[in-house]
């Protein structure tokens, strides 16, 4: 069910501004990969090219190849809508649909695509997804209440439940814990460890402890200066990156000696 991701010479633009340049990376299925690096180095931008969300912004374009298993998602004729239903995304700020109940939020991926299902099946998917997101026990008695009534951490787990409900191949997470308290952060981190069994996970994080706790491999991105494109500097096993990186700027960043 989960797939590998491979970027080949990927350049990412906002209009004529080259935001990320020449990324080559191969991410194995059923692993957790952390993206770290200073603000503005293009972690979010690159992440959003992996499910073709980048091009939703005006004038935003991508050059190069991005292979999901062997299929280039930027090949002509590929429908971005189909790509996005295979590559799920969890955003920095929890964004459950405020007008929908908790149950409808979980089922949103099906409802949106006009997929009809019986009540039994809907209940089963709701329960499975909420259990998968470690949220079931907290919300099982109020599935018909609005999702916006939950705490921030619960909302983020609801968003994760919504993402895994449609059984994607890959889950992208952009600083999923940056708006959460420490307890909710731990809950989400535990969840990532469990999700790894079924999905390929890529997580952007500002928190290096988090990267070392949850990820198998870590990619360090950096930027030479404002207005310069961000680049992938080093990609290796997380243990290696945090104990013995092979590039100097990675070590500077890890040890906090970064300018």
């Amino acid at each position: 069910m989960s797939k590998s991701i491979e970027a080949i010479d990927l350049d990412v633009y906002y209009g004529s501004f080259l935001a990320v340049e020449g990324v080559n990376i191969r991410i194995e299925p059923r692993t957790v990969t952390a993206f770290i690096g200073p603000s503005g180095c293009g972690k979010t931008t690159f992440l959003r090219t992996m499910n073709r969300m980048h091009e939703v912004l005006p004038n935003a374009t991508v050059k190069g190849q991005l292979l999901l298993d062997a299929e280039d998602i930027y090949a002509s004729g590929v429908d971005p809508v189909r790509v996005r239903s295979k590559v799920g995304m969890v955003f920095q700020r929890p964004n459950p649909f405020p007008t929908m109940s908790i149950r409808d939020n979980v089922l949103a991926g099906f409802r949106l695509n006009g997929i009809r299902m019986g009540k039994a099946q809907a209940d089963e998917i709701t329960e499975r997804s909420l259990k998968g997101a470690n949220l079931w026990n907290e919300v099982k008695d109020r599935l018909d209440k609005p999702g916006s009534g939950l705490s921030g951490g619960q909302q983020q787990r609801l968003c994760i439940a919504r993402t895994i409900a449609v059984q994607p191949e890959v889950i992208l997470m952009d600083e999923p814990c940056s708006a959460l308290d420490p307890i909710s952060t731990l809950a989400v981190e535990d969840l990532i460890g469990e999700l790894k069994e079924h999905y390929t996970i890529v997580i952007v994080t500002h928190n290096m402890q988090q990267a070392s706790r949850v990820s198998d491999k870590t990619a360090f991105f950096n930027i030479a200066g404002t207005g310069k494109p961000g680049k992938l500097i080093e990609f290796d096993y997380t243990d290696k990156i945090f104990s013995n990186p092979s590039v100097q700027s990675t070590e500077d960043y890890i040890t906090g000696r970064f300018g």
Binding site: V81, R84, G88, N95, F97, G109, L112, T163, V166
Partner: peptide, 10 residues
């Protein structure tokens, strides 16, 4: 919320 929907394959 627009992006939430798009990211779900809408």
């Amino acid at each position: 919320h627009e992006e939430a929907a798009l990211a779900l394959g809408a």
